[in-house]
């Protein structure tokens, strides 16, 4: 009996607390930048697609909802021919973002993705690619990598020496 009255009293007190419920969607919730919502594919500082089609995000995904096919342009630059995320399976764990070696795939603070039809939750590259660097500005994988795919010549990277002249016998 005592406990019942105590409970009712505590509930009554809540009438005077600050409200946690907000009037969504009129009022929007404030999300932190680290919030793991909608997944996007970003671009590098030069405006090129960041994704190099390495398949690591797909391998990291615990529900296997990422599928892509890598292809190459005429300079040998790798990019995804298609890139598909089935958001009806995605659990927004962010493993793909962690796995991504190029900062291409990012989870952003937006969860407004509801659809009436499940099929509409299948996103293709056109739906995922944004015209921005997202949370990690400044990084261009192909400047750090050793391959020459039209972004920089062999040896022109910050951390690279000029290519070896194999006819040179000097120590």
């Amino acid at each position: 009996m005592i406990s019942h009255i105590r409970t009712m009293w505590l509930v009554f007190l809540h009438l005077f607390h600050k409200k946690a419920t907000i009037q969504y969607p009129e009022e929007k919730i404030r999300l932190r930048p680290r919030y793991k919502g909608r997944i996007v594919l970003t671009k590098d500082p030069d405006g090129g697609e960041r994704c190099v089609g390495c398949y690591l995000c797909a391998a990291a995904c615990p529900v296997d909802c990422i599928a892509l096919q890598a292809t190459e342009d005429e300079h040998g630059r790798r990019y995804p021919e298609f890139f598909r995320i089935n958001f009806s399976r995605c659990i927004f764990c962010g493993y793909c973002e962690e796995a991504c070696p190029t900062y291409a795939i990012q989870l952003i603070p937006d969860f407004e993705m509801a659809e009436f039809k499940r099929q509409n939750l299948v996103f293709e590259k056109e739906d995922l690619l944004i015209d921005s660097q997202g949370k990690y500005p400044g990084y261009n994988f192909y400047k750090a990598a050793g391959v020459n795919i039209g972004v920089k010549e062999k040896g022109a990277g910050d951390q690279e020496e000029r290519p070896v002249d194999i006819h040179d016998l000097l120590p």
Binding site: A58, A59, C65, L68, R84, I85, N86, R118, V122, E124
Partner: peptide, 13 residues
Amino acid sequence: YSGRTAMLANLAV
């Protein structure tokens, strides 16, 4: 093996 729930999702989810 990756992509089980996405490989054919473009055809049927």
